[in-house]
Design a protein around this nucleic acid. Structure first.
Lengths: 259, 259
DNA sequence: GCCATCTAGTGGTCTATACCTCTAATTCGA
DNA sequence: TCGAATTAGAGGTATAGACCACTAGATGGC
């Protein structure tokens, strides 16, 4: 039962950032650093208070927040521990196809069907908060899992924001990774709806299924931190290979799940 | 800008329930009571502390928790207010068909197809944590919205737990309301999966659609506070009338959504 | 050898106080 | 009359100390 290692440097008393918040980041970084896995123990509140010259209440303000973030677990009479990476927690929320497949133990890849500029359909323009007829980038891809067709995907992106997207840039990789690596965009939240539809002849052919086979239609509108729409995606998933799961909570409508 | 009214009776100092928790429930009940809508102001922390004979820190412990529950909003320099009922929040999580339809502006009802005892299929017994062959209550219902078929639903319940379920008890009402009213059971969380399937002849006839039409298959396993399975439900929703939506969050995998 | 008791250390609750920043209304001067 | 300064009151941060309930290991009696 190892104890997690925290930096010895004192906190910055002069910073406008509150002390409890500094400590919170410190601990969060140490956990995410991963040198100390689940069930790893945190120094006791009294030890932390002495180490950083804080009162115990201030230390608690940091650790309590981390507990509600799901990074720590408290056990009365025993101590505070790094939370185990629960299956339903943390990892997800807003995941890309690539992440999703990896979590399912499958190897994701993609075949680009087309990448071109299109005038925004009125419904799409409305969703993306653009003027009707604005130029959009339409990325049409076949998503594969273990080299078998899994989904047929249409991604609409603002041309103004992504004027230089090329097939080379995309490769077979994750669009979300590209957002971050090339454009510095981090997605913060999304709205997603799920419907059941039947495969058209074209969809059936691409997905290697029969015409009229059931498909899950996922529509996702993803936002960045400034609440601007980054992409609007329509994905058609093969129902025989894909199932969407969520965990529902009674309390405050907080959900934990996976797509 | 009215101020929310709180009971004048003092908290129970002798109770094993912590004072901050008592205050928290008090405020939560007052908000849920609904006599005071959004943007209604809470008495200041100092006022609450004096009113209930608490220190301000204890009052904060209650209000801070309510903020993270989404019931309150704090505005520095101004005050603490009842949170607006955000569309994506609170209302849901684990909702019954009846609640779900009401939120969509539809009137829910139900037609009982059958209510009988069956031996548990092995998969179902496994899911419900019972011995294979245990007796289950199978409730088969057609769910209507505005008197039009919306879903075809199979609910499996433990016979041991619900030995006296009758059609009269059920009426056309909500099963979840019955759980609470008659058995004192409150659901706490559930695991739900969503697939796309095609309508069989029987399903098509009951739902008034064509054979082979697309359906959303929702499977839900609902648990009570003791982590015991209360029910296992399979619902077939008409894809032309029903769409499932969720809001995804990047952060800690906390989801907010609606089915 | 076994079981009850003790004890050190943990998180859980609570108090009383202090000073900070922020907001908005009031006051006061030009 | 208008704008700047004051001020009251809100939440935000932080302290030091107290006692409680719980856990688990150590102690001690039988």
């Amino acid at each position: 039962m190892p104890v997690i290692a925290l930096p010895d440097q004192p906190l910055d008393e002069t910073s406008p950032t509150p002390l409890y918040f500094q400590l919170r980041e410190l601990i969060a970084d140490a956990i995410k650093g991963g040198q100390c896995g689940p069930d790893c123990q945190l120094p006791s509140e009294r030890e932390l208070a002495e180490k950083y010259g804080l009162s115990r209440m201030t230390v608690r303000q940091a650790t309590v927040a981390l507990v509600s973030d799901g990074l720590l677990i408290r056990r009365r009479g025993k101590g505070t521990y790094v939370a185990p990476p629960k299956y339903e927690r943390g990892l997800f929320g807003l995941t890309s196809f690539s992440e999703d497949m990896k979590k399912r133990g499958l190897t994701p890849s993609a075949r680009i069907i087309s990448l071109r500029q299109v005038p925004a359909p009125s419904k799409t323009a409305d969703i993306m908060g653009l003027a009707p007829g604005s130029t959009l980038v339409l990325l049409e891809r076949l998503r594969l899992a273990d080299d078998q067709p899994m989904a047929y995907e249409f991604s609409y992106l603002s041309f103004q924001r992504f004027p230089d997207l090329t097939e080379d840039l995309l490769g077979a990789g994750s669009l979300y990774e590209l957002f971050w690596a090339r454009y510095g965009i981090r997605l913060s939240h999304a709205w997603q709806s799920i419907e059941a539809v039947l495969a058209s002849p074209r969809e059936a052919k691409l997905l290697s299924i029969n015409q009229g086979a059931p498909l899950l239609l996922l529509e996702r509108t993803a936002y960045d931190e400034t609440n601007t729409v980054v992409e609007f995606v329509k994905s058609l998933y093969r129902a025989d290979r894909y199932r969407f799961s969520v965990q529902l909570q009674q309390n405050a409508g907080k959900w934990k799940g996976d797509g």
